[in-house]
Simulated scan of single mutants.
Amino acid sequence: MKNDHKLIYSSPKEGLEVLSCSSGREFKSHLHDGYVLWLNSESGEKYSLKGCTGILQPGSISIIEPETIHSNSPCCTEHRHLRSFYFSEEFVRSLNLKLLGSENAPSPFRNNLLENRKLWLSLSNLHHKLLNTAHKLETDESILSVLSGLYKNIDERDYIPGSEDKRVDMVIDYLHANIDGNLSLAELADLAGCTEFHLIRIFRSHKGLPPHSFLIQLRLEKARRLLAANSNIADTAIQCGFSDQSHLTRLFKNRYGLTPRQYQKSI
């Protein structure tokens, strides 16, 4: 864990990472390869999500699904404490199994905004504990106890199948499979069966970014996972499709607020 109270990353359990941010840093349009649950305990947080903008006030809880483009920044840079939980998809499936009896049962981990003061306080306390507690048993018990409170907010009527263009899904699958490749727009458009211009338009409409910018976000998330596993930085850059270590370092710091080396020391 990085002992800089302005920007702290910690990974207390496999599949779970937490961020504490009290700096004025703006998080420009980006994605996560897992689920995000975030709240703030000082001031408000301006955000943009899937074309909608708003302010996350203290007392509110926001959940963001994997690979959903979003951005956020503090309403007041002098008074900010953003508390984020990052859950891998495997972690959420395991949680669903433990709490609902099925990995695929409808769960509260959907794009959502919750107003529940009691749950907000429990999550704030859990976040603090995960940054400061090293005991595995206490950590496991706290996670299950607090996150079970999320499941009381499930309303299966809210679970409507997505309407995203299947061509976009096909291209995203291809980007995942060729994340380190030197892909061309023509190649992706041919895969989707449309013109290059039309692909950019439908991709941006559904994901909030054009294909190349989206691919960069996927590469950064893969790099973050590899670095957390103590992968060599230069090797990570190549495996993730960056031209060299300096290219990775520049984009990584811009995205996460730390260089790859600083991030590895913080985990």
Results as ranks from 00 to 15, higher is better:
residue 145 S to R: 13
residue 254 N to L: 14
residue 100 L to K: 10
residue 27 F to L: 07
residue 192 A to E: 03
residue 98 K to I: 09
residue 88 S to N: 06
residue 10 S to R: 10
residue 43 S to L: 02
residue 129 K to Y: 07
residue 175 L to H: 02
residue 167 R to H: 02
residue 158 D to W: 13
residue 246 S to I: 05
residue 111 N to W: 03
residue 49 L to Q: 07
residue 63 I to Y: 03
residue 235 D to M: 10
residue 128 H to K: 15
residue 127 H to E: 06
residue 265 K to E: 12
residue 199 L to R: 00
residue 78 E to M: 07
residue 157 R to H: 10
residue 233 I to L: 05
residue 29 S to V: 08
residue 92 V to F: 04
residue 216 I to R: 09
residue 86 Y to P: 03
residue 147 L to A: 05
residue 124 S to M: 11
residue 160 I to F: 00
residue 96 N to I: 05
residue 243 S to Q: 07
residue 193 G to Q: 07
residue 146 V to E: 06
residue 185 L to N: 03
residue 122 S to L: 09
residue 11 S to W: 08
residue 157 R to F: 10
residue 126 L to N: 09
residue 255 R to M: 00
residue 257 G to N: 03
residue 76 C to F: 11
residue 211 P to T: 11
residue 16 L to N: 02
residue 134 A to F: 11
residue 107 S to D: 15
residue 164 E to G: 07
residue 155 D to Q: 10
residue 96 N to P: 12
residue 49 L to N: 05
residue 242 F to W: 00
residue 159 Y to D: 09
residue 251 L to M: 09
residue 198 H to I: 03
residue 131 L to T: 03
residue 1 M to E: 07
residue 59 G to N: 14
residue 217 Q to P: 00
residue 92 V to D: 00
residue 108 P to Y: 09
residue 180 D to C: 08
residue 193 G to T: 07
residue 214 F to C: 06
residue 73 S to L: 06
residue 128 H to G: 08
residue 133 T to A: 12
residue 20 S to Q: 13
residue 107 S to I: 07
residue 209 L to R: 11
residue 80 R to I: 10
residue 81 H to K: 13
residue 231 S to D: 11
residue 9 Y to N: 05
residue 231 S to R: 03
residue 7 L to G: 02
residue 117 R to Q: 15
residue 258 L to P: 07
residue 142 S to P: 04
residue 115 E to D: 09
residue 202 I to H: 04
residue 35 Y to E: 11
residue 241 G to F: 07
residue 159 Y to I: 13
residue 228 A to W: 01
residue 131 L to V: 01
residue 156 E to W: 08
residue 66 P to V: 08
residue 99 L to S: 04
residue 72 N to R: 12
residue 31 L to T: 15
residue 135 H to C: 13
residue 25 R to N: 01
residue 3 N to E: 15
residue 183 L to R: 00
residue 30 H to R: 14
